[in-house]
């Protein structure tokens, strides 16, 4: 019975994530537009774009290899598996034992590599430039993420996401400076990983400022649809990850019934709404930074995460 519940929750979760991802992107765009005094496209617009792109045939460059054809599916599959492991409205999903934070970083790296390979496949200047920059940013983002994981691992004794969420929810950890610092670091990493302002501009096609979009210049049709969907999934994943770790309240416990699921869903939607609003405010208030400032931005996150761990060493030494 418990297993059946876990399977049902898992399937509902994946469906929810797939449905919410483009919507989330649309909501953030709409909120940003309203803040900038524009009316903005409907939040459903990304869905319509995907629908349109899926109908179109991809046009590949003459010298594109099999990499360009396979990579979008690989990246999407990796992101999908990653997103399936991050709890949303309920805990105790079927894939909870698989959902390890280091594995999550690995799956995101897999998607990133697939994207960078596509950027280099045709041999254009922008693609290579975007790939080199994307990989360089990850050099700073990854250790920051790992140090945040260190903070969680010290507090929860594990790197399993479901168990971390459970510990933070019931463990009576109180308000910890370390967690606040780790949250800042995670937010910074999330901004960088999702190519948002101030690291990258998701709305630009000005060549010199873009990183993520530069690698997709040669993609079209269903390939482009997959890439856009993948980017939306990644944004959803990060927001859900932040919500699951730092605001684990309201999620239905393992083995609960549909009523608890509905309550959990409402709580999750509320959390995601708040995070979207915060993202939109942040992006409207700040300007994109120079590419070579990004290491400083991410390096600050790295140092904050290190500080969080160091303070935690102190307090574990005290307790």
């Amino acid at each position: 019975m418990l297993l059946l519940g876990a399977v049902v929750v898992q399937l509902l979760h994946v469906a929810l994530m797939l449905a919410a991802a483009p919507l989330l992107v649309g909501v953030v765009r709409w909120l940003k537009a309203r803040m900038q005094g524009r009316r903005g496209a409907s939040p459903l617009q990304p869905w319509r774009d995907l629908e349109k792109l899926l109908r179109k045939r991809p046009v590949l460059a003459a010298n594109a290899s099999l990499v360009s054809e396979v990579a979008p599916y690989v990246a999407f599959a990796a992101s999908l598996v990653a997103v399936a492991c991050v709890p949303s409205f309920s805990r105790g999903m079927l894939l909870a034992p698989v959902g390890d934070l280091i594995l999550l970083a690995g799956l995101l790296a897999l998607a990133r590599m697939a994207l960078a390979l596509v950027g280099m496949d045709v041999g254009t200047a922008f693609g290579g430039l975007g790939a080199a920059r994307e990989m360089s940013f990850s050099v700073f983002a990854e250790p920051a993420l790992l140090l945040c994981v260190l903070t969680f691992a010290i507090l929860a004794g594990t790197t399993n996401l479901d168990l971390i969420a459970a510990t933070f929810r019931d463990g009576g950890l109180g308000l910890r400076v370390s967690l606040a610092l780790a949250a800042m670091a995670m937010l910074t990493v999330a901004v960088a990983e999702n190519a948002r302002i101030p690291v990258d501009n998701p709305a630009t096609h000005l060549e010199l400022t873009m990183v993520h979009e530069a690698m997709l210049l040669e993609s079209s049709g269903r390939h482009l649809a997959l890439w856009e969907y993948q980017a939306a999934l990644k944004l959803t994943l990060w927001l859900a990850l932040l919500a699951a770790i730092f605001v684990p309240f309201g999620a239905a416990p393992a083995g609960a019934g549909p009523l608890a699921w509905v309550l959990g869903l409402a709580a999750w939607l509320l959390k995601m709404g708040v995070l979207c609003l915060a993202l939109a405010v942040f992006e409207s208030a700040i300007a994109k930074m120079r590419v070579f400032r990004v290491p400083e931005f991410l390096g600050a996150a790295l140092l904050l995460a290190l500080l969080a761990a160091a303070l935690l060493f102190v307090s574990t030494g005290l307790a």
Binding site: G172, L173, G174, L175, R176, V177, A180, L181, M184, L304
Partner: peptide, 18 residues
């Protein structure tokens, strides 16, 4: 840890450091 007075004071100190 886990007691409100301590946690809040700690948090303020951490925020100043930040």
């Amino acid at each position: 840890f886990g007691q409100l007075p301590y946690d809040v004071a700690h948090l303020f100190g951490g925020a100043m450091l930040l």
